[in-house]
Simulated scan of single mutants.
Amino acid sequence: MTVLQFLRHNFLLISTLLAVVLGIVAGMVCRTLKPSSDTIQLVQFPGDLFLRMLKMLMLPLTVASIITGLGNMKGSSAGRIGVLSMVCYTSTSVAATLVGLTLVLTIKPGAYSDSSTTDVLHNNAMASTMDIFMDLLRNILPDNIVAATIQHSRTEMVVHGIKLQDDGNSSSGNLQETGGDSRKVNQSVTAKKTVMVDGANIIGVLTYCIVFGVTLSQLGRRGAVVTQFFTAVNIVTFKMIRLVMWYSPIGILFLVMGQILSTTDMTETGQTLAIYIATELAGLAIHSLVVLPGLFFILTRKNPYAIYLKRTLLAQALY
């Protein structure tokens, strides 16, 4: 492989890495100019557009690709693949959750920040940890598929305050008296509540699309029009993603630059970010090199690392 071939095949990757480096350098240089908040917002604007384009295409890509793949299958293979897909996605999601919780409880990345909000955020996360698997099951079966495209369920700890006034009238409608005399009492009651928060419910959308695709494959010729529609949507979405990816170096450049300009304390932020990155990389390494190969070995009784090696050699041969 010549240098020109390498540059041609990896031009987008190289330009993205250069954009990150240029964004860091430009951000550090521009910090000395002390730009205003309006200027920082203008610098971040191209990066915000890039993120919005990615979010815009995520849902059509997920829906069209799954329905197209399952809808084009014949016989009972679609149902079998659909069930396996759900089992695989759910099991890997649970495994990833366990790995993430273990690393967070072990490393505690938020404990290295001096921010006054760290303890509050940490306590809220710990309060919802016991309910995370129940939330996973709730999100698998969303009660509103339209709302699932923008929201997901989450259990939160809600604190209800009860304040009793001196005149015997409680602001919460309750009254506590001792010896016939009313007195001022402050009391807090903690309760769990399932709420809808911003963020697409991907696993719920996947569940709906898998069932939809399996049912569509069973319709045969009657469902051919719908299958062709989602096939066209899938092709168009992939072409749109290619266009967005060519814009990605510009978006990443201004996104990194804007984040550096908007950071108040670079030292504290750098230390905290380094711990978070280390935790994230450790989780990805454990999940991709231990958990997924372990599941593959349990299901197939084959060496997963041999498959990794074959895929690597195949990718090199294609280039």
Score class of each variant (00 low, 15 high):
residue 61 L to C: 03
residue 198 D to Y: 02
residue 86 M to G: 05
residue 241 I to E: 07
residue 17 L to N: 09
residue 319 Y to D: 11
residue 137 L to F: 15
residue 44 Q to R: 15
residue 33 L to S: 11
residue 150 I to E: 12
residue 124 N to H: 09
residue 113 S to R: 02
residue 78 A to Y: 02
residue 265 D to L: 10
residue 56 M to D: 04
residue 308 Y to K: 06
residue 271 Q to F: 15
residue 253 L to F: 04
residue 162 I to W: 12
residue 112 Y to P: 06
residue 227 T to N: 13
residue 292 L to V: 13
residue 282 A to I: 03
residue 2 T to V: 09
residue 155 T to V: 02
residue 283 G to M: 01
residue 34 K to N: 15
residue 301 R to S: 08
residue 129 T to K: 06
residue 251 G to C: 02
residue 196 M to A: 09
residue 122 H to G: 14
residue 122 H to M: 13
residue 131 D to W: 11
residue 188 S to G: 10
residue 69 G to H: 03
residue 228 Q to L: 13
residue 292 L to E: 08
residue 278 A to E: 06
residue 306 A to N: 06
residue 198 D to P: 00
residue 248 S to G: 08
residue 310 K to A: 06
residue 219 L to Y: 14
residue 7 L to N: 01
residue 285 A to M: 10
residue 36 S to V: 00
residue 213 G to P: 02
residue 33 L to D: 13
residue 183 R to I: 10
residue 117 T to Y: 09
residue 187 Q to Y: 15
residue 180 G to C: 04
residue 159 V to T: 02
residue 62 T to E: 08
residue 80 R to V: 09
residue 40 I to R: 04
residue 219 L to K: 11
residue 16 T to G: 07
residue 136 L to W: 01
residue 275 I to M: 01
residue 83 V to T: 06
residue 13 L to Y: 04
residue 217 S to L: 04
residue 44 Q to F: 11
residue 106 T to A: 07
residue 33 L to T: 13
residue 69 G to Y: 02
residue 285 A to H: 15
residue 291 V to T: 03
residue 68 T to A: 10
residue 37 S to C: 06
residue 277 I to V: 09
residue 231 T to S: 11
residue 120 V to T: 12
residue 196 M to T: 03
residue 261 L to I: 00
